[in-house]
Computed example of a mutant assay.
Amino acid sequence: MIGSKSSAKLSISDELRELLDTNSTSKTITKDSFLFHEGLEANEIYIIKTGLVQVSKLTADGKELILRICNQDDIVGELSLFSDDPKYLLSGKVLSSGEVQVINKNELEKALVSHSKLTFEYMRWSSTQMRKFQSKIRDLLLNGKKGALYSTLIRLANSYGLEQDEGTLIDVALTNQELANFCAATRESVNRLLVKLRHLNVISIDKSGRISIKDINYLKSEIGCENCPLEICNIN
């Protein structure tokens, strides 16, 4: 999986970046390991320097719901800040090996308290992450598996899309099972939905598994898309 569009990320100031760098240590991460597990005590926050990290949650029926695919300069574990006895709400699994900056939660809180302007900026950034989470859960609850898949395709296009004559090519190959994990659905149900979209000429799929969206307005109309800004409507 390649890096996503920079326009789909909310940038942070040089001052906040310096504060985060000053209060961090480096750690090597290996494929298939976990940075953190849902339900465990949240003492650390991570900034990805290289590699990919999948952030997901287990549903009540035991299915995995992928919420983010994070890469360079993304922050994960960030929602635990300024809370008492915090627990990780999600799990972070390493998809490809790399390196992260590890920031102790308590040390970062102390540093932010001394810089009120940066505290406001950090909380604004964190609020954006929560809005992403809420919008993805909304798509799943209000529109079911179909809505979850359609919104996932839109988010992937916003993060990894290349504009071409026929439409938008999602420049990353995902299996039907991987798409299903974004929707908390089965591989079979996602396959049926993709076949239907192909018959409607809404999408096409090349030999490598990459999807081209020919009619993104169809997907948007089916889920009542609110045309959220890119920093909200993306897969990161």
Score class of each variant (00 low, 15 high):
S26Y: 00
V53E: 06
N71D: 13
L58S: 10
N71P: 01
I29F: 05
E109L: 01
K87W: 02
L19M: 13
L35G: 08
S13T: 12
L65K: 11
L112C: 03
K105Y: 03
I47T: 10
K27M: 15
I48A: 03
K110W: 00
L108P: 04
D73Q: 10
E38Q: 15
T22F: 12
L20C: 11
E44V: 01
S33G: 14
L79C: 03
L89D: 09
K63V: 00
F34D: 13
D21G: 02
L81W: 04
V100A: 05
V102E: 10
E18W: 03
L40A: 10
K63A: 02
A111F: 02
K49S: 11
F36M: 06
D85C: 00
T50H: 11
E78G: 01
E15R: 13
D32S: 15
E18G: 03
L58N: 09
L35F: 10
L112D: 02
L81Q: 03
I69Q: 00
D14K: 13
H115W: 01
G77A: 05
A60C: 01
D85Q: 13
L58C: 06
Y46G: 05
I48P: 01
G62T: 12
K57A: 08
G51A: 05
S26D: 09
A42D: 11
I69G: 04
K63Q: 14
V53W: 06
P86H: 01
E78Y: 00
C70D: 07
L65R: 12
